[in-house]
Amino acid sequence: MHEATIKNLRIIEQFLKDNHLKAEIELSGSGCEGRCSEGPNIIIDGTCYHRMEKGALIDVLNRKFGTENNGGE
């Protein structure tokens, strides 16, 4: 698996752990989707998110699961 995707996987796992969302999520890798130039890609409930670097991924996850941080002090 591509290194960036592995990093993203770690972030997702950490995200699920932090927000105790383990039960509802089923994690699966998928073969080549032919859109590597826009990668790393992640598909959540059918929507494909492109160029998922760490910050962008956290935003997507926060919004998807309504766990916007409330002032990270």
Binding site: Y49, H50, R51, M52, E53, K54, G55, A56, D59, V60
Partner: peptide, 13 residues
Amino acid sequence: RQDIGRSRQLLTQ
């Protein structure tokens, strides 16, 4: 932290 990915994500998706 460069946050360009986040800004691009806001703009494109």
